[in-house]
Each structure stands twice: as structure tokens, then as C-alpha cells.
Nucleic acid binder design. Structure first.
Lengths: 276, 276
DNA sequence: CGTTAGTATATCGTATGCAAGTGCGTACGT
DNA sequence: ACGTACGCACTTGCATACGATATACTAACG
């Protein structure tokens, strides 16, 4: 009970990261309610830091507070994907336009080229290995590299707030895709082409082209994401009608699941979302 | 001590609005440190809701937390104005493009026209009155009308997150301008022209023109804001060398608020008086 | 058998107590 | 007189206690 007062907001951060991990990794499913006390016990701290962490996550859009129920993980809807990608498009396109209009520092150029080439290398490596898709670790690395490219552009635009909004947005996007299959070589190629095209346009000082390219890149990504979402949605829908036995579910989800194993098999009555 | 438990976060809201008011109205000067206990006593609640309110305001960018010092009101810098307006430009321009590409509902059109005309009417009224500038109440009304026009556009674009970011951004912008002189008729005219032009382009379905117009409008606004900021900055600099007597300051700042009205001294740093 | 009232419990919002870190003033020693 | 070290009062972070409320379950009644 006395885990060494650390004076910094350590416990709060701990709680924050814990919950965020739970959400991002999918251990906490969308719609599942979490209570302050439960989490506090799990993490081993009191309600206060947990409460603050929850408040922050609500503000950031990961959780939603329902009056008598507690905080629940947001139900990702199709509309949300659209909104998040639109936000990215608006900001990143603006930023790349600004970057293209200013002179590119050589160090920045090098960093962009590196991030760009790394993706090409991954595609090549994948082809050489003979496998079809990136495995989980490679996928993580790809995501980091992709993120680096985009965030580098944002940073060069020199607007910290814009950077933060996009960063938050991208983090939030991950909630929708905690389980998706790895990219294949063709997709990596396409992404590389887009990135490379944007970079080329920037170095040519052609702002309009850079903006158009990047915008298209983001729109295409959104399209792909929407498709995987809809696929997932169909499976989920099916699951709602004929739920799989828990033993099978456990195999499908090799996560180290919830230890306390909620004693109450709560079924959310009336998840009244009307799909179009 | 027993102010009617309202079950919602009433006290927290109270604290939030109180502090926000203090900051927006300029009663709490930039850089002044505020403490949880001091505020709690002023508002008449305990530390907890105040603490949460402060947390939210920090997250929203109104306050900044400094380790050993507490929370201080942000020091608005020139760079911040640039960033905030850039953000608005990126998002609003994107939104107006989207709106122009879709069909405008007649109700929306009417609302936009109304917001547009209201500004023209204000310009006309000002001219008719023979006065030079808008007084404070009129200025408030103008700001509300201007905000309404812009937010209507955002709403029509149908992206709630985008709307929220812009709303927060505009609110934050007000920290920089809690004291500025009212617009004159010529400025109102210019603003009207921009709004009208945007609206015209939207109704013509000319997305590119609408975007260009709105972008220019925002850039011009930023320019004006920068100039007033620099003017203010010069005065502030002068103030630092030769501060005005508090009696004069009191006249410059028409306080309305606190019922208990403890003789609050100028809290610059430290302070924390246990008064009543 | 269905409906309603009562109770029990989980949940939140708020208040308060306690411990730790930091800056500033002061007093003491050289 | 100057430098140093101590102490105090301030600050936050965390834990816990308390009160109110809404939901869910149960039991009794029409």
C-alpha cells in the first residue's frame, strides 16, 4: 500500500498508460465499462490518480462517460474514422504546403528520405523473404516509420499545436485497428510511392502538387481503413447473433486476458446503435 | 459547505468557468500563479473540483503547470497567435471546401446569410450613430456573430472533432485579446465582404474560390491580431519599467464579480492570503 | 402471472487529511 | 560584512471518508 511516494505525477501517469494500453491493445473491448475502483485495485493505487487519468482519456476521446455506468471505451463508428482522417488530411495537407514553400534544410531532407527509403526496404525485404504479409513486429516497425515520415513533415511546418492534434488523432485511430492483418508488399509499394512523390514535390518547391499527393495518400488510407473496419464490423455483427464459445475466443485472442474475470457476466442491454 | 449536491459535476463546472472567466477577462494576468487552495477558498469549494478544473484548463492550454510553483496563466507569445490562426486556417479552409462541394440546405443558407447580414447591419448602425468604434457590448455581439458564421460553416462540414478543435482554438485566442478596442466601420465592412464572398462562392459551388477567400480572411485577421498584440506588447514593456498605480489599474479593469470580495492584492507570485 | 414498490449495492462527486518536495527568508558562523 | 545552512510556509500528489444518486434485484401484491 506504500509504493514510495515519487512526487512526480508518477501514479497518474501509470494509471493513464495502463488504461491506454488496455484500450489500444484491445484488451478492453469497445463498450466495456470500467469503474474507478476496479481499475484502482488492479493497478494498486487509489481512486484519485485513476480518476484523473480517466478524465484525461475522456478529454482525449478514448473513453466516454456514461452517468450511472462509469466510463466506457468508445464504440468506434464508421463516422469516427471519416472524421479522424479528414482532420489529418486538413492539417497535414496544410502543413506540407507550408513546408514546400519554404526552403528545405538538408538535415530534414535526409531524415525524410531515410524514412521513405525504410519503407521501400521493408517492401523489398518482404518480397525477398517470400512471405505474403508483414508479421506483427514488422508491422509495428512499419507503423513507426510511417508515423515518423508524417510527423517530420508536421514538425518542419513549425506548428506545435498542429503537431499535437495530429499526434492525438493518430493515436486515437489506433483504437480502431488493434487487430488488423499486416500489409503486403503491394500496399507498401503504394505507400512508398506516395511518400516519395510528396517528397519529390517538396524538393521541387511545388506546393500544390505536394498537397495534392499527400491528400490523396491520406484519402486512400482512409478508404483502406474503412474497408477493414467494415469487414471487422460484419464479423462483429455475426458475433452478436451467434457468439462463439469463450474457449474459442481465448484462442483467437492470445492476449493475457483479464485476470479478475468479471464475476458478473454483464450483457449490455440494448446497445441501441442503429446502423444505416 | 453544503451547497446542494447536484450529482453532475456542478462544482467542477463552477470552478472551471470561474477560472476561465478570470483568465479570459484578464483579471488573472499572464504569468500569475494560481494555487488550488487559494482558488478553492475564493470559490467556496474544496480543492478537488478546483484541481480537476485546473487539470482540464491545462490540457486545453489556458494554464501551464510549473513543478514547484503551481499553475500559471500562459504567457501569450507572438508565435502562439501564428499557430492558432494557422490551425484555424487549415481546418476552416478544408471545411469550407467540403461544404462548397456539397449541396447547401436552404435552412443553412438562411442561417449563413443572417449571420452575414447582421455584421453589415452593425456596420450600418455604427455609421448611423456617428460613433467611431463599437463599444464593449456591441463588440461582444459582433464576436458572437462572427463566431456563429464560422462555426456554422464548420458544422455544415459535419465533422464534430474539427469543430471542437476550432472552438477550443478560438477560445484560446481570446486570451490574447481580453482588452482590445472595438472595431470601426471600415473593418466591419471588410469582414462582411469576406464573409459574403465566401458565402457567394459556396452557393456558386466554387470550392476553390470559397477556400481562397476564407483563407485570406483568416490570414488578414491574423495580421490585424498580430499588430494589436505588438502594440499591447510595447505598452506592457513600458509597464514593466514604470508600473501604473493600483488605483489607475482598478479603473482600467471594471471588476464585477466576487460577492465576498476580499481585498485581493495583486497576486503576482506567491500571495496565498488566508483572508476572511 | 404481471406489475410495482422497496431495498441493496455500485457508482460518482466532493471534502479532507497526510506526506513529500521546493523556494525564500532568516539567522548563524566565519 | 559576506556566505552558508537551516527552517518555514508554500506548493502539489495521493489516499481515504462521506453523502447522494441511479440502477438492479427482490419481494410482495393486485
Amino acid at each position: 500500500m506504500k509504493p514510495a511516494r515519487t512526487r512526480d505525477g508518477s501514479l497518474r501517469r501509470k494509471a493513464y498508460q495502463f488504461i491506454q494500453q488496455q484500450v489500444l491493445s484491445g484488451r478492453l473491448r469497445a463498450g466495456s465499462a470500467i469503474s474507478e475502483v476496479g481499475l484502482a485495485k488492479q493497478i494498486g493505487v487509489s481512486r484519485t490518480p485513476v480518476r484523473e487519468a480517466i478524465g484525461q482519456l475522456v478529454a482525449e476521446g478514448f473513453l466516454e462517460q456514461i452517468p450511472g455506468r462509469g466510463a466506457v471505451v468508445i464504440q468506434p463508428e464508421r463516422e469516427d474514422i471519416l472524421e479522424l482522417y479528414e482532420l489529418r488530411e486538413a492539417l497535414e495537407v496544410y502543413a506540407v504546403g507550408k513546408v514546400a514553400r519554404q526552403r528545405l534544410r538538408s538535415a530534414d531532407s535526409a531524415a525524410l528520405h531515410a524514412a521513405c527509403e525504410e519503407i521501400r526496404a521493408m517492401a523489398e525485404g518482404l518480397r525477398r523473404s517470400g512471405r505474403e504479409r508483414l508479421d506483427e513486429a514488422e508491422m509495428q516497425r512499419f507503423l513507426a516509420t510511417d508515423l515518423r515520415f508524417h510527423m517530420l513533415l508536421l514538425r518542419m511546418a513549425g506548428n506545435r499545436r498542429m503537431m499535437k492534434v495530429v499526434a492525438d488523432t493518430r493515436l486515437l485511430t489506433r483504437v480502431f485497428s488493434y487487430r488488423r492483418e499486416g500489409h503486403d508488399a503491394a500496399l507498401l509499394d503504394r505507400i512508398y510511392q506516395y511518400h516519395h512523390g510528396v517528397l519529390e514535390a517538396i524538393e521541387a518547391g511545388d506546393a500544390a502538387r505536394a498537397m495534392e499527393r499527400l491528400g490523396e495518400h491520406i484519402r486512400v488510407s482512409m478508404q483502406e481503413r474503412l474497408e477493414t473496419y467494415e469487414r471487422w464490423e460484419r464479423e462483429h455483427e455475426l458475433n452478436r447473433i451467434m457468439p462463439l464459445p469463450t474457449s474459442v475466443l481465448a484462442q483467437l485472442e492470445p492476449q493475457g486476458g483479464a485476470p479478475p474475470a468479471p464475476p458478473r457476466p454483464r450483457v449490455r442491454s440494448g446497445a441501441g446503435r442503429t446502423a444505416p
